[in-house]
């Protein structure tokens, strides 16, 4: 006999002991329970877009949309929760193209414009993750759907099931091993920075808000991104191609009775200075609105939307996201009628 009953039982006991102690350890560290914002969660949300109405918009964009628009607040005021399809660190254009090409989408779309992502060239890094998810969606199999619902059940009970922060890959990424000059492995955020809820809402944790060291870590991430991934704002023909592609998608949605609104959420500090320098409003935001003949909401134009400070220059704290959403709804409402 190769493997005795005792061998198997000892193995099972060790694995069980590890899982229990691992879970208890992270609970003792006050880690907040969150959900994996993976392909399946995005696909499950993507399925909901056909339920979109003027009061239940689809949100596309990057992390600012996920942090800054508080879905529960929206639901409390309007009665329906928006459908959050934004993706961290990505341009919304692949999703916009996807929704434009979907003949059954006739809803309302709020497009978060973070210029350095929105105006990145086709097929560049900020588009890759969005493209991957868009391409995956039609192939989201019944098996993956079943796995997603089981996973959801486990994630709602186990703190350690957090691929972004508590997986082997996440631990390896955070090892303090210096890199060769010029090498950049992508942004690595402290785990307290973001917790994702089942509806894909992102929130900063209380620990993050209370600790300026953690906030400075994220600020440093933005500085590193600027240093290692130099922005080359699209200009000339490249910019025109982006504007034309955006207009095509907007027109497709409008032709079916849908609505599109562009939204610029707050940022400040060094991030805001860099955005202003690289993407002057008149050359990008204003041109986007005129080229696509679309209404836009720029936070600086509204006193009630420009009163916020971002703890790490780019996203709103949860409490500010609630106020921002409360103030945003009256601005959005007339545009969706």
């Amino acid at each position: 006999m190769l493997l005795t009953k005792q061998t198997a039982l000892l193995c099972a006991g060790l694995v069980l002991a590890f899982v229990v102690s691992w879970e208890l350890y992270w609970r003792s560290q006050n880690v907040v329970l969150g959900y994996n914002d993976d392909d399946s969660r995005w696909a499950a949300t993507r399925q909901l877009i056909y339920q979109s109405t003027p009061t239940r918009p689809v949100l596309i964009g990057s992390s600012r949309s996920k942090f800054d628009i508080d879905l529960e607040t929206w639901e409390q005021i309007v009665g329906q929760k928006p459908i959050q399809l934004s993706l961290n660190g990505t341009s919304p254009r692949p999703v916009l193209t996807d929704l434009g090409n979907d003949p059954n989408f006739r809803g309302t779309l709020i497009v978060d414009v973070t210029e350095m992502l929105f105006f990145s060239p086709d097929r560049s890094f900020p588009e890759k993750e969005a493209l991957r998810r868009v391409h995956h969606y039609p192939h989201w199999s019944l098996s993956e759907q079943a796995s997603f619902w089981i996973s959801e059940m486990l994630e709602s009970r186990l703190v350690f099931l957090d691929e972004m922060n508590l997986s082997l890959g996440a631990f390896l990424k955070k090892l303090p091993i210096p890199n060769r000059p010029g090498a950049f492995g992508g942004p690595v955020f402290p785990r307290e920075f973001e917790v994702v809820s089942p509806d894909r809402q992102s929130r900063m944790t209380l620990a993050f808000l209370a600790d300026t060291t953690l906030q400075n870590e994220v600020k440093q991430v933005w500085v590193d991104v600027g240093k290692y991934v130099p922005m080359k704002p699209a200009v000339g023909a490249e910019l025109l191609a982006i504007l034309n592609a955006t207009k095509r998608s907007v027109d497709q949605i409008r032709a079916r009775g849908g609505r599109v609104i562009f939204l610029r959420t707050p940022s400040d500090g060094v991030m805001r200075q860099a955005e202003k320098a690289l993407f002057p409003r008149e050359k990008y935001w204003n041109r986007l609105l005129t080229h696509t003949q679309t209404t836009g909401i720029y936070f600086e134009d509204y006193p009630e939307l420009r009163q916020f400070t971002c703890p790490e220059w780019s996203h709103l704290a949860p409490q500010d996201a609630i106020t921002f959403t409360q103030n945003l709804i009256p601005v959005v409402r007339p545009l969706t009628r």
Binding site: T7, A8, L14, F18, E163
Partner: peptide, 16 residues
């Protein structure tokens, strides 16, 4: 063998 087998499974769980 038990230790090695358990290590494999623990690493699978950790990888997530």
């Amino acid at each position: 063998l038990s230790l090695a087998w358990a290590a494999l499974l623990i690493l699978v769980i950790l990888t997530q």
